[in-house]
Each structure stands twice: as structure tokens, then as C-alpha cells.
Amino acid sequence: MRWIVRLVVLAVIVAAIGLWVTRPKTDDAELLAGLTPDTAHGEQVFIAAGCASCHMAEDADAEDKLVLAGGQPFASPFGTFRAPNISMDPEAGIGDWAAIDLWNALHHGTSPEGQHYYPVLPYGAYIHMAPQDVVDLHAYMQTLPADGTPSQPHEVGFPFNIRASLGGWKLLFLTDDWVMQGDLSPELTRGREIVEGMAHCAECHTPRNALGGLKTGADWMTGAPNPAGRGSFPDLTPPEMSWSEGELVEYFTSGFTPEFDSAGGHMALVVENLSQLSEEDRAAVAAYVKALPLE
């Protein structure tokens, strides 16, 4: 009996250590202290990050896209996730969030209540945002409308509905290391900030392992099946991606391919976002794509 008691005690200790190591992480407000918000830059961050593309109501159009009432479904092998209301309503949305709450959500995947967010919120990419980016984004979002539509629950079954397990997922896959390394030019550095960070391009264009983590190295941006089960996202590395930088910039601007086809599906929303960035930013994204594959 004594060895059974010891085994139970050991299991409890290991479990407690595991819960402590994988607990939701947060930073204190001092991290953002002294930063002056720039609402105009925050709008550019909002556009590059595709916030409205995911959090607008289904079939929203024109100015209604800025009413971030949520509700769009995102199917995956782990269940169907619903984009929450992130409008400025203090009850249904995030109107009562401070800038540090937004930082912790985007950087650590942690809610103001201290719970893990599912990585359908691409904090694995947003972790690359600088503190100033988040402060500016928070300031811009405060200028957007409030909407009282309640967020819809995710449709996720056991065991994926156990949020505590997400701490282990973060321990394995959440890192602020850049994937494209080396002595990069200013243009490539900016392209990396957009592609790997704000625009979270790899979330669609990079294959995943069995636990849903993005594969890096030679697999980075080599295309992936659509988690909703319809088609796939294209490989952005050569020889599959043969467009020139100029052709990529044109695609990001107008949505037209060199073959005079046009962007469709969710990519049409991505192009809509990219087209609102500066031409320099679109050129930086094109430069990043043409610098692939990684060695």
C-alpha cells in the first residue's frame, strides 16, 4: 500500500507542476506604460491583421464590416470555432478592455479572466506585434461601433474543450522567434513583420502536425489543406509560385493574377486588406514571398 500512496503523491505533484508551467501567462500594464497611441497607425495594424475579415458578421458589407459582432464559423479537425464579438460593447464585446488586455490576448493567448484562448485566434503570429502596434490597435478599435450581439459558443467536443490543455500546446508551439532568419534587408524585415506577424499568412499556407502546430523549416509556406475540408491553400514557394514580385504586388492590389483570374473565397478579403496598405508594404510582402523557400 505504501508504494501506491507514494505513486499517487508523485502523480499529484507532477500534475501540479504541469499546471503551473502551462498556466495562462500575462504581462502587467507597466509593459505598455508611456506609449502614446497613434490611431492612424492602429488602423493600418487593424487592416493588416485582418480583424474585420474574421470578426465581422456573416455577409457583412461596406461599413458594416467594421461592426465586429462576430459569429462566423471556422471549421477544423478539432471542431467548429465561432468568431466572438470584439466590438466596443462593454458587455457583449471588448469595450471595457484596457490595452494590456488586448496585448495579453494577442501575445499570450490569455483572456482578461485568465483563461487560455484557442489558437484559432492566431496569437502564434500576433506574438510578433510590438507593444506600440498593440497600443495603436487598441486606440483605433475604440473608435469603432459597439454591438450587443452575444458571442456564440464554440462547437468543440472532448477532449479539445478542456482549455487547460492549451497550456501544453502553447509550451510546444508558441514562440516569438521569427521563422525567416538571417541578415535581412529593411524591406524583407518589414515583409516578415506583415507575413509572419500581423497578416498571419502561414496560418493558411503552412501545413500542420497532428496537434495543429505549424510546421516550419522546409515545410514553411508550402501550402496546406483547407481545415474546413474544401480544397487547399496554395504553395507559395518555387517552382509552384512563379510570379514575379511585380505580379505579386499587382495581385495584392487588384486581386488579379497574371492569368487574369481573380482572388476568391477568404483570399478576396485578404487582398482587400492588403490593397489598403501602402505600396511599400505590399512590395515588402512580395519580397518575402520571393525570398522563399527557407533553407
Results as ranks from 00 to 15, higher is better:
S151L: 07
D59Q: 10
I94P: 13
A286L: 06
L214H: 09
T110F: 12
Q276F: 09
A210R: 07
L121M: 14
I162L: 14
G109D: 07
E247M: 05
G191E: 01
L294H: 10
W169S: 09
F256Y: 14
C51K: 05
S262V: 12
K290N: 12
P119D: 06
P145H: 05
P122Q: 08
V135R: 02
V21I: 09
N85F: 11
F158I: 13
F260Q: 14
V8F: 15
G167Y: 12
F256P: 08
A40R: 07
E203C: 04
P84F: 06
M141W: 08
L248P: 15
V270R: 13
H108I: 05
Y126F: 15
V9K: 09
V195R: 10
C204T: 10
V156M: 00
T253M: 02
T253E: 10
V135Y: 00
A62E: 05
A228S: 12
Y140W: 13
V21L: 13
L32H: 10
P145V: 04
R190D: 09
S151P: 12
E193S: 14
G71R: 08
A218I: 01
D27W: 08
P150F: 07
E196G: 03
L31H: 11
A11Q: 08
V285Y: 01
P131M: 06
V67M: 09
H107Y: 15
E240T: 15
T216L: 14
G167E: 02
Y126N: 06
K290Q: 07
Q72F: 04
A228W: 02
K215D: 01
A62W: 11
W20A: 14
G79Q: 02
